[in-house]
Structures are given as C-alpha cells and as structure tokens.
Design a protein around this nucleic acid. Sequence first.
RNA 1: GGAGAGGUGGCCGAGUGGUCGAAGGCAACCGCCUGCUAAGCGGUUGAGAGGGUAACACUUCUCCGAGGGUUCGAAUCCCUCCCUCUCCGCCA
Length: 420
Amino acid sequence: MLDRKLLRGEPDAVREACEAKREPCRIDEWARLDERRRGLLVQVENLRAERNTASELVAELRKKGQDAAEQIERNRSLAQAIKDLDEQLRNADEALESLELTFPNLPDADVPRGRDSSANLQLRAWGEPPDLGFQPRQHVELLGSLFDQDAAARISGANFILLRGECARLQRILISWMIDFHRRAGYEEIWPPFLALPSSMRATGQIPKLADDMYLIENDQLYLVPTGEVPLTNICSDTVLEETRLPLALTAYTPCFRREAGSYGRETRGLNRVHQFEKVELVRIERPDRSDKAHEEMVAHVESMLRALELPYRAMLLSTGDLSFAAARCVDLEIWAAGQGAWLEVSSVSNFRDFQARRARIRYRPSSGGKPVPVHTLNGSGLALPRLILALVENNQLPDGRIRLPAILAELMGAEFLIG
RNA sequence: GGAGAGGUGGCCGAGUGGUCGAAGGCAACCGCCUGCUAAGCGGUUGAGAGGGUAACACUUCUCCGAGGGUUCGAAUCCCUCCCUCUCCGCCA
C-alpha cells in the first residue's frame, strides 16, 4: 500500500509505476473518491460534534430537573442524518481501500527500466559453468528412482514431487544446514503455521493480485502459504516495535504451495516448477534508513551460501518489468544447471520499503520520540530446494552417471557421492 | 466437540448509561529536593483520520476484542462473531 500523501501529491509517479509493472492504474478514480471521502468526513464530524454538545446539554437540563424534550427531539433527527452519512462514508472508505490495494509499489529510481527479464542487469557472477567434457544429462534421468514422478502423480496429480531415499535425505539435511547457516549469521529461527488468513495474504501483497495462484481451503477460508514470507513478515503485523528492537532478522523453513495457474507447459519438467516445494526463507524488519544496507547484506549472505555449495551463480538486478507487485527492488540469484544448460532462479532478495509495512501495519517508535512510522520489510529465499537439488545433481554428474557431492554436503551426508 | 471465565491505555487494573480517552498503580521521561544513589514531591507520556501551520501550536471526530442493535446519549444494556484461559471429551 502506498502512502496516501504520495497518492495525492505525486499521481504521476504512481502512473509511471503502474506502467512499468504493467498494472492497470486507477489513480484518477482514486483521487475523485478521496476528495469525496474527505468531504463526507467533515460533514459527519460536524454533525457528531453538534450531537455531542446537545447530548451534554440534555444531561445538564436533566440534572437541574428541567425539561429536555426539545433537545432530545433535535438530537433524534441528527442521529438519522449521521447514520445516513456514515453509511456513505463507509462505502467510500471501502472503495478507496480496495483501490489502494491495486497500486503496485514504486520501483527504486536506479532500477533498470525495461519490459521484461531481458532488461535485467547482471551485477556479479561467481564460478564458471562447469565444462563436463561430455553430453550432460538432465536431473530427471540422473535421479532415476530417487525421483518418483509416478507415485507423486498417483497421490496428488500432476506437478507434485516425491523424493526417495538418499535424495529425500539430502533435502532434509539441506534444510537443516541452511537454517543453521542463517542462525549463525544472526537470524532467529522460526517455525510458523503453514496456513494463513486472507488478511495475512493481503498484508504481504499476495491478495488481491495473486489470489488465483494460491490454494484456498474453502471450509475455513485459509490459504496455504505460497512462501515463508507470509508468516514471517506477519509475525509483526499490527505491531508498534520499539526502535531498540530493530532490526529483526528471521528465518524459517516452510513448504510453498502454488497453483501455477497459467504456467502449464513452461519449464514444468521434473523439479523446475511444481505445486509444492520446500524453501528456507529470510525476512528482515528494518529501520527505513537502514534498509538499503540490509538488502545488500542479505544478497551477500545468500551468495556466500551458494559459494559454500560450490554452485556457479549470477546476481541479477531485476528490471521494472520483471519486478514483483510489492517490491521496490529485487536481486535474483540464478545458479547454473549443466543438464538444462540454463540459469535457474533459486533466490529472490527483495526490498519492499514500507509497502508491506503499511498493509500489515508494522511500525516502530523512534527512540527520539514521536509518532510510530512504518518499518521497511525485506525478504529473500535461502534457498528454494527443488532447483537447488536439480543444479547440484546436474552440475556434479560424472560420465558414468554417478553424482559427486560438494565437500560440505559430502561431510553432512557421510558420503562422497549422492549416487555412486 | 461440551461446560465455564474473560478480553479496557506500554503493562497491571477500576469503571451506578450522561464532561470517561477512561480512576488507581507500575513503567518511562522531565523537573525539584538530596553529597551520590534510593526515597519523597510536582509534572509529562495511547492510536487513527480530518482541519490548521513554513513547521510547531491549536482544533474536531473516532477508537475500551470485531461487527450489528437499543437509546437523545453506550466501555457500561442486547445480539452475532473472533480470540485467550480453565475443566471435560476426542485426537497426532
């Protein structure tokens, strides 16, 4: 949600952002409604003030034992007028708010302008795509029975995954190792609920835009979380934090449920794009003036994790057209997958500035005193597991089909090879 | 799932339908006092949305879990819902 002062004062900036993110822009409609709402508000408040003083007068007359019938009669008509105006005001408020939920966040000024991912800017790269010296195979083939698509489909339908044996164990160990990796960097470990209320989804920005991409449990009106960002960020919703408590750094494992409506046929083979995947998420709640630094720290932190896993990667600053609805800036970390010969996104590290904080009402009280102000929220994956496993398998394959494990995982797994 | 209790300001806690945004206490902050500290004394300290201002000041309305209702007037009465706690049942 954008600041109303911004919507009033800089409608052109909002228009630009909508265009950049290819969102419909109803700022003019908003401005008319806002005007109307304020007019109504002044009217009701005046009537209310009138009623308040009149009611006091009634009390006073009564106390003196005088007749108050005339006052009461006047108040009765006031009450009706107030009720009518209140109704109009409530309608205006609702319309205004639902409009406000449709404005995307403004991209940072230095985010590359562009229509899609082709305009993304490569910031850094590390490692070389390995030259295997033979025709590399893809993960589905390499994993064989450790990746049981048939069973997954019988249990849950298309595009679910079922890992077996050492591959299942690898995923479990990776999750645990990643959480520890973050914990050592100062992140508090969280185990959150995996179902969330519509209000939580609205707070982080999944509703209304991405509502159709989420699983909804209709009986209870609960959504399955599409990312750990939802529960982690909402830990602080409706809260005024003391400045001394900032920053907050949180990490959690969650499954992520996504309907992926409309993306069938696109990179849906194997572990690329599935309805349920596992992810370890990072969230930070920061003082506004610190969020740029926090964002850089988060990107650097995730990069260090990729290096520990010996995965060649590149860091991409997303262009305006590739930026998500709620983000002001985002760095994607893409790892090389030798079998597919492609870069795969395994982490998006985003700064939402105060966009989510306004929706979720997460504020802090400055130590210097004064009103609570919205915090800045950030999040990043660290990391998404299926694509991570995919790349580990494809990059570390040997001509005979064996799969070597990078040193750190070899130690954790107690084996030099995943398949050997 | 059944029965009961309760949800009030940063926290605790009072509140006969009519100056109640809310007593009292704690905490925090600012003074005074004191050799220092403590104690004591005095004062200040909630949120949101408007108006107003260069910015303050000032000012209006709303908010006592949420939403309805009764009433001239609701923290206070009625209804619905949500949440917390206790006991019982069930269950991984």
